[in-house]
């Protein structure tokens, strides 16, 4: 056991877990090893990781930093206003729009048109318009909730806050 720890760096349970993982992965790959399309599968596998870790994540993290970076000013003018941070009212509709765009991308961009028509007889047309309506609804609801919060904060803070 001590030798395992010294050379491997962890216990037997850890090693067992890793072995199970690698054995299953090799077994799985063996299923498609004769499939001429396996290089494409591998490319999509690696691209999925790369696009998430090095494109999607940096993009939304940078977007979020833009959003939160702007809001940290603490000038007197900013402090006078009722303290209802707007950041999450921008963040949430953006997140909702981004998530639904990625999830329903084939329909929104009409990428499934010929297949869908031949399989179901349906015309895929209206999805993009519906998605825009959904995004507009999310923006509107978020703005409305913000407005209500601002008005409530103002009505609470008016008696004392107006003098400053």
């Amino acid at each position: 056991m001590r030798i395992l720890h010294r050379f491997y760096g962890a216990g037997a349970g850890h090693l067992l877990g890793i072995v199970v993982c690698l054995v299953l992965a090799v077994g799985a790959v063996a299923i498609v090893v004769d499939d001429p399309a396996w290089p494409r599968m591998l490319v999509w596998f690696l691209a999925a990781v790369a696009l998430h870790d090095f494109v999607l994540f940096p993009l939304y993290a940078a977007g979020d930093r833009l959003l939160t970076g702007r809001k940290t000013r603490t000038t007197a003018a900013a402090r006078r206003r009722p303290r209802v941070p707007v950041v999450n009212h921008v963040r949430l509709p953006l997140l909702g729009a981004g998530l639904t765009f990625l999830l329903f991308l084939p329909g929104i961009l009409g990428r499934n048109e010929p297949t869908l028509r031949s399989l179901s007889g349906l015309d895929p047309g209206p999805v993009a318009g519906r998605w825009l309506l959904l995004v507009a609804t999310m923006v509107a609801v978020s703005a409305l909730v913000y407005l209500v919060r601002v008005l409530r904060a103002r009505s609470v803070s008016t008696p004392a806050g107006d003098g400053g």
Partner: peptide
């Protein structure tokens, strides 16, 4: 599930 076969391999196998 949205009939976009951009990947170009057998969905079931992959």
């Amino acid at each position: 599930i949205q009939y976009d076969y951009a990947f170009g391999f057998s969905f079931y196998a992959a």
